[in-house]
Write a protein that binds this DNA or RNA. Structure first.
Length: 464
DNA sequence: CAACAAAGCGCG
DNA sequence: AAAGCGCGCTTTGTTG
């Protein structure tokens, strides 16, 4: 892995950053080991009960009849074979090795209780084997884990985390989130877990590269809202009809994927299917499919690459939204993407705003995404180094214990709470921008604090 | 038995 | 012409 800071600033960032990350690793995170052990036992009971319930299902019997003693309930290959070859009215797509694709998204297209339960079971197994077991494996004799952070493994000059990986602790599914995060506690009863998150840092970093006026306005004008606007356009909603849930879909199933280089066919499928999966309604309580029908959209469409979308299809609509998105709304962003790609083709490398050179063979999407992803993380890395220095300068007992790409986690002494939050806020919103003049947009940070002595799960938005 | 690749899923 | 960026970890299945 090539790791080439090209400027003094980039070199300093990684030299100092390495030390900060090593200190975090050394500090470690206190684990409520009794809780984790209890949770593991309870979860295994749930897994057992669900497995027994599923054994009475007709699909299970078909599976058993076909595979006999070779039946393996954990085998997606066998599941795909049973679902797509033995059941009526199912048709699957295949992976590049010829197996049936049998991931969560593929199974969700089939309306079967057995498959809903299978997905839930797999989720529980993941929580048990990767997270609870992973934590148990790594706790030291004092009840601490020491997630490791590497700076020399990631193509974009982000960091990675291992043993255990602190970068993918569950948060999106509420039950699993609580199950796992409840086990991360402050090192003493008179402390808090405190997490500071940069909000929208990748979008802001992108804007610092491409200087797109529309994107800059969305960032600077607090009354404007890019995800809301896209939500309204995608689902044909007025300002009075959109909901937070629909806005969330637009953000995560259109805007971010498009920024990363996805295209309308994938976006249309997931934007359409999520309506059914989450039973989404408009603010006025209307079914979203019904609402779209009133606006002339009656079906998803075939979503076949190379084929023209059918009239009155959602696919065709999203294709037009995508065209408008890149040709009108973010025209300057589009121009930057082409210019940046051309410059890379001429030179064989590109330099980040944070002082790194990324060279070697890359396709167009990588060339666009790498500098943005890397620079966004470098903002966080600079901040944690600065915060750490200030903690030492003021002889504080608060310790930094982890980092998740755009957030920093502190184990904060109760009497230092106000000071710590003041310091982190100052560094992340003011000092960072003084350090890097290329940051031409405001930086915002959200602080979340656990009640004294309570877990990471229990953190709440900080109110002074 | 070990080593490896593929598939899948957790996160930003 | 191709068709989502970056990771780490676990299980399954194959190979030797």
């Amino acid at each position: 892995m090539q790791c080439t800071p090209i400027t003094h600033s980039g070199y300093q960032l990684f030299q100092q950053g390495s030390i900060t990350l090593a200190e975090m690793e050394c500090n470690g995170i206190r684990i409520d080991t009794d809780y984790i052990n209890r949770a593991q036992k309870q979860l295994n009971v749930k897994i057992q009960k669900l497995t027994v319930r599923m054994q009475k299902d007709e699909v299970y019997r078909i599976w058993k009849r076909k595979y006999g003693v070779k039946m393996n309930f954990g085998s997606r290959e066998q599941l795909g074979d049973v679902v797509f070859n033995e059941l009526e009215g199912t048709h699957g797509t295949r992976t590049k090795t010829g197996r049936y694709k049998a991931d969560k998204a593929a199974l969700e297209n089939i309306d079967l209780l057995f498959l809903r339960r299978y997905t839930k079971l797999e989720q529980f197994k993941k929580a048990s084997s990767t997270y609870l077991k992973g934590i148990q494996r790594h706790v030291d004799s004092e009840g601490f884990i020491h997630p490791f952070f590497a700076l020399d493994t990631v193509r974009t000059f982000r960091s990675s985390s291992t043993d255990p990986n602190l970068h993918n602790i569950p948060v999106r599914e509420p039950f699993i989130k609580k199950l796992i995060r409840r086990g991360f506690i402050p090192r003493e009863p008179n402390r808090h877990i405190v997490e500071h998150d940069f909000s929208g840092i990748e979008v802001k970093t992108a804007a610092c590269y491409n200087h797109d006026p529309t994107l800059l306005r969305y960032i600077r004008d607090k009354k404007s809202d890019m995800h809301r606007d896209m939500c309204m356009q995608i689902y044909h909603l007025t300002i009075n009809e959109y909901t937070d849930a629909l806005r969330h879909c637009a953000k995560n199933k259109f805007v971010f994927p498009e920024f990363y280089g996805d295209w309308y066919i994938n976006c249309a499928k997931s934007l359409w299917n999520v309506v059914n999966q989450l039973h989404l309604k408009t603010k006025t309580g209307e079914d979203v499919y019904k609402h779209l029908r009133r606006h002339g959209i009656t079906k998803l469409g075939h979503c076949t690459p190379g084929e023209t979308p059918l009239p009155h299809s959602f696919e065709g609509h999203v294709k037009r939204v995508e065209k408008d998105f890149w040709e009108n709304r973010f025209r300057v962003y589009t121009e930057w993407k082409w210019d940046w790609w051309e410059d890379y083709l001429d030179r064989g490398f590109f330099d980040t705003l944070t002082g790194f050179r990324i060279a070697g063979a890359m396709d167009r999407k990588k060339v666009i995404n790498y500098p943005i992803q890397g620079s966004a993380f470098h903002c966080l890395l600079w901040c944690i180094t600065r915060i750490n220095k200030l903690l030492r300068k003021y002889k504080m007992k608060t310790k930094l214990i982890g980092q998740i790409h755009d957030s920093v986690i502190g184990d904060v002494l109760h009497r230092e709470l106000k000071d710590y939050i003041e310091i982190a806020h100052q560094v992340m919103t003011i000092d960072l921008r003084k350090h890097w003049s290329w940051i031409i947009v405001p930086m915002d940070v959200d602080a979340e604090v656990s009640p004294m002595g309570r877990s990471w799960f229990e953190k709440e938005k900080y109110k002074p």
